[in-house]
Write a protein that binds this DNA or RNA. Structure first.
Length: 328
DNA sequence: ATTCTGACA
DNA sequence: TGTCAGCA
């Protein structure tokens, strides 16, 4: 546990700044993204999605960019796009056979190519400088300009992913990430407090903890799910939904407190790596809960086989409390 | 120990 | 999508 100079378990980056740095074998990528290794190979073979480099012996080596793309794919899948149709939606590297503008999807991909990367670089620089004023300035300039959900999915989460990967190996990585988490926390907490008072619907946010906790992946001070729940919570606040973030737990004790918290719905952010047994267990516990449950987030798909009838679009939940007062 | 391909349910 | 066999 001692965070000394022990670089032994850094299987992924034997040399901090060697040429092989930042390349990950398929198993590691599977853990990082929550996508099964077989699925990754299948995506590549059947759809030409995510073509990694290879070692001389043919083993796949995924770059940070590849991993970012996998996560981009997952975000499309979460939105209900079929895997066979995400190819054209991705930020294209090689010559696109047929650049078909599919309405807003293509428009967003366009923005993603031009505007976001520059912004991400500026954000990264602000982070590396511990420049809080600059960081908040950049955020101020863009929050409000776009719907927060778009900002979260197209900018903030990809940026955090990238930053996490880029910093791994740096001695000050933990300090930087802790600082960033603190900055974002205070920022969004302030909004949450205001929003919660006026919210008509109250939602309980819970990260599902795999019982076989797969330890911290890359030296993350803040667990990966914490970032995600912070951003999701911010988005919900922005949309006028009251949010209570309980952090990471398993479901066992939840029924004991539900009647006192009395939320309108439960939003669960699954983590990576559930065994089949765990999935069944979770399914049973979810079925026993007396309220609306939604699975959401990066790893929701890994649980979709478990209770697809509960996997509702977040937007559907929000539709009833949308601004404009359609109902209520 | 892990990953590879390809066939198959 | 996932599992299995048979290799490297």
């Amino acid at each position: 546990m001692q965070p000394t100079i022990d670089a032994k378990n850094q299987t992924t980056q034997a040399t901090a700044d060697g040429d092989s740095a930042g390349l990950y074998p398929i198993g590691e990528v599977s853990r990082l993204t929550g996508v099964n290794a077989v699925t990754l190979r299948a995506w590549q073979r059947r759809f030409g999605l995510v073509i990694p480099k290879r070692t001389p012996k043919g083993h796949r080596l995924y770059s940070a960019a590849d991993i970012a793309q996998i996560r981009e794919i997952c975000r499309w899948l979460e939105r209900g796009v079929a895997i066979s149709k995400v190819k054209p939606l991705l930020a294209p590297g090689p010559a696109q056979t047929s650049a078909l503008p599919q309405g807003q999807a293509a428009a967003q991909a366009q923005i993603a190519q031009t505007e976001w990367p520059a912004l991400m670089q500026q954000l990264t620089q602000a982070l590396l400088d511990f420049n809080a004023a600059r960081l908040h300035g950049l955020l101020d300039a863009n929050i409000g300009l776009y719907p927060f959900g778009l900002l979260r999915q197209q900018l903030l989460q990809p940026w955090l992913d990238e930053v996490g990967l880029r910093l791994s190996g740096r001695l000050d990585a933990k300090l930087l990430l802790s600082w960033l988490y603190d900055q974002l926390s205070v920022r969004f907490a302030a909004r949450r407090l205001g929003a919660n008072k006026q919210a008509r619907k109250h939602l309980l946010l819970l990260r599902l903890l795999p019982s076989a906790a797969p330890a911290a992946a890359i030296g993350d001070v803040v667990s990966e799910g914490a970032w995600e729940s912070m951003l999701v919570g911010a988005e919900l606040s922005e949309l006028g939904v009251g949010v209570t973030d309980l952090g990471a737990h398993d479901l066992a004790a939840l029924p004991l407190v539900l009647d006192r918290l009395s939320p309108d719905a439960l939003l669960l952010l699954p983590g990576p790596g559930y065994s089949a047994g765990e999935r069944a267990n979770i399914a049973a516990q979810l079925a026993a809960l007396p309220l609306e449950c939604h699975l959401y987030g990066r790893f929701a798909l890994t649980l979709s086989g478990l209770a697809p009838w509960r996997l509702t679009e977040l937007s559907a939940l929000l539709a009833s409390s949308e601004t404009g007062g359609a109902d209520e």
